[in-house]
Simulated assay, not measured.
Amino acid sequence: MAEVSASPVAVEVHERVATLTLDNPARRNPLSVTTMTALTTALRELGGSGEVGAIVIRAEGPAFSAGHDLTELLDRTLEDERHIFAVCTELMETIQEIPQPVIASVQGAALAAGCQLVATCDLAIASEKAVFGTPGVKIGLFCSTPMVAVSRAIGRKRALQMLLTGQTVDAVTAADWGLVNEVVPPEQVDVRARELAGQVALASPLTLKIGKQGFYRQIDLPQRDAYAEMSEVMATNAMACDAQEGMSAFVEKRTPMWLGR
């Protein structure tokens, strides 16, 4: 296991799975500008690595992330405030732009921008003890940027319920609403997230890139336009070496040898 970077975000790579750990448990892992920048940098570095097939984002302590560092939002200029949310947007967009699937491993509370982070990840595993919320309305700062990711994950009515009341939902409800994929016992959350990442990382890296990028490109298109775009994507995908190898291996009942092209 190789350590790639350190605090505020620890990064490890093992058997084609990278793990990014938020490591400020005493402050409930706030998404400060420094932390968000470190996450973005690490994701971009890993995104360009052919040695990484999937990425897990996890956290130390009782909270996954309580959201933005509120001390950074007090007594600042408008340009300062704009910068903070621009850094946040860059992080969220990077998660969905890099070729590898990103999996959130949520052991505790994911609130405000922390909930946004979970909603933005491609997949999410939650502990039975995890809770999710967008409580900004309670402190006079509506969770407008978390709303972008959360509403796309769970739909309008459920998102507005979270946003307007500021109340948290438990992990089982989050799974029922589509905010997370699975709920597991607390001691299994990291294990299951890494297991899922390992399963994903078995696929051709080229195929994962094509599939992930295609998913986000088509998801908000009208159905006819989505079919038109994805038909072309699938036709060109079928011509790739890895697709030809994978189909041949399936027919010949052998394990494929991915070339990444």
Rank of each mutant, 00 (worst) to 15 (best):
E3L: 13
V4A: 11
A6P: 03
E12Q: 12
V13P: 01
H14L: 14
E15T: 09
R16C: 07
V17K: 08
T19D: 05
L20A: 02
P25D: 05
P25T: 03
A26V: 12
R27L: 14
N29T: 06
T35F: 06
T37Q: 14
A38G: 03
T40M: 07
T40R: 10
L43I: 02
R44S: 09
E45T: 14
E45C: 08
L46G: 06
L46C: 04
L46V: 02
G47C: 01
G48A: 04
S49F: 03
S49G: 09
E51W: 04
E51D: 15
V52N: 07
V52I: 11
I55E: 03
I57P: 01
I57Q: 02
R58M: 09
R58C: 10
R58H: 06
A59K: 05
P62Y: 04
A63R: 00
F64T: 08
S65Q: 02
S65L: 00
D69F: 07
L70R: 12
T71G: 00
T71H: 08
T71K: 09
E72V: 06
E72Y: 06
L73T: 13
L73W: 06
L74K: 11
L74V: 15
L78F: 12
E79R: 10
D80C: 05
R82F: 11
F85H: 12
A86V: 08
V87K: 02
C88D: 11
M92K: 02
E93H: 10
P99S: 07
A104Y: 05
Q107D: 02
A109N: 07
A113R: 04
A113W: 10
C115F: 01
Q116Y: 04
A119N: 02
T120V: 05
C121K: 03
D122H: 07
A124Y: 01
A126N: 05
A126E: 08
K129S: 14
T134Q: 09
K138R: 14
T145M: 12
M147T: 09
G155W: 04
R156P: 02
K157Y: 12
M162K: 03
L163P: 02
V169Q: 09
T173R: 14
A175T: 10
D176Y: 08
D176A: 15
L179Y: 05
N181Q: 13
V183L: 07
V184I: 06
P185H: 12
P186G: 13
E187H: 14
E187I: 05
E187Q: 14
D190S: 10
V191M: 11
R192G: 01
E195S: 15
A197E: 08
G198K: 01
A201N: 07
A201Q: 03
A201P: 03
A203D: 14
L206Q: 15
L208Y: 05
K209A: 15
K209N: 12
I210K: 06
Q213M: 11
F215G: 05
Y216F: 15
Q218N: 12
I219F: 13
D220R: 11
Q223K: 13
R224W: 11
R224A: 15
D225R: 14
A226Q: 04
E229V: 15
M230L: 12
M230P: 00
E232P: 01
M234G: 01
M234D: 09
M239H: 11
A240D: 10
E245Y: 06
G246M: 10
K253P: 01
T255Y: 11
T255D: 14
P256S: 03
W258A: 08
L259G: 14
G260I: 07
